[in-house]
């Protein structure tokens, strides 16, 4: 597949323009002096100032961050255990049901997941707030973690684990010393995925929360329902910059790692 043609160049340019122009416009207009978001009235950072002075947004951001840290950590532990069970445990009672429950939440519409969890929380009389959002987020994001981790587990050489066991490791030691370091990149990307999903989620959090806890997406949604606002543009710019820096760093790190591995391979071949 080579021979890069004009057609390819044009479709890539148009495709990426479509993906990025809306976000670029959003970022540019967060620095607009005017309250009218579509008319440029000069450069200003006042909306960032107003955003940082807005306690309701700061509270919501703090709630969102706490929920995301707790739920993604729990989801990573549960999801990794689930992946290990699915790939390594062979047959056990109710295996089909288990793997069904791992994959179903991935395709379940958010409105249904949210509705069903809310009805459960009300049914058992659990007061809705930060705890219930954490429970809800953990449930759906653990399935994403388990898919990411199990694809890594499925491709790695089982004989490494067996060798560790033969050399006198207990199964817990073998997991800690051999399996975990090998699947670590997948576990980390699973955690990051769970973290992002939790930061992002509007629908499930709206169902699972009560009056005591408001997350950032809920706050943003109720603000933008009334129309475009420059404060939300400023908030979006901050969020987009964090993600951009993160993704670029991650891809540079993985690129450097690939280069180093290739160099090491070359050295090994030469010696």
């Amino acid at each position: 597949m080579s021979r890069f043609s004009w057609f390819n160049a044009v479709s890539l340019t148009l495709g990426f323009a479509f993906l990025y122009i809306p976000m670029i416009i959003l970022v540019i207009f967060s620095f607009n002096e005017s309250k009218l978001v579509t008319v440029w009235a000069g450069f200003s950072t006042k909306w960032y100032g107003e955003l940082l002075a807005n306690e309701a947004f700061l509270d919501a951001a703090w709630v969102t961050l706490r929920v995301a840290v707790f739920s993604s950590t729990l989801a990573t532990i549960l999801g990794t255990a689930a992946a290990y069970v699915l790939i390594r445990s062979g047959r056990f009672f109710g295996r089909t049901l288990f793997s069904g429950m791992i994959y179903a939440p991935l395709v379940m519409p958010e409105v249904i997941t949210g509705l069903s969890l809310l009805l459960l929380f009300i049914g058992i009389g659990l007061e809705r707030g930060v705890l219930t959002i954490v429970l809800a987020h953990t449930t759906f994001s653990m399935c994403y973690v388990s898919v990411v981790v199990s694809s890594r587990l499925a491709t790695f050489d089982k004989s490494l684990e067996e060798a560790a066991l033969d050399l006198g490791c207990s199964s817990a030691q073998a997991f800690r010393l051999v399996t975990l370091p090998i699947i670590a990149p997948a576990v980390i990307s699973g955690w990051l995925l769970a973290f992002t999903l939790s930061l992002d989620d509007l629908v499930i959090a709206s169902f699972a929360t009560g009056p005591s806890a408001t997350t950032l997406p809920i706050k943003i949604f109720s603000a933008v329902r009334l129309g475009v606002s420059p404060e939300i543009n400023a908030l979006s710019t901050i969020m987009i910059s964090i993600v951009t820096v993160g993704v670029i760093t991650a891809s540079l790190v993985s690129k450097r790692k690939m280069v180093r591995e290739r160099e090491e391979e070359l050295m090994a071949v030469r010696s």
Partner: peptide
């Protein structure tokens, strides 16, 4: 590849919101 994955990590809500200012 990175340019395709980047929007995936950015908030879904914000990406929908971006169009409100464009299409009004």
């Amino acid at each position: 590849m990175m340019l395709i994955i980047l929007p995936f990590w950015t908030s879904f809500l914000i990406r929908v919101y971006a169009w409100m200012g464009i299409l009004s």
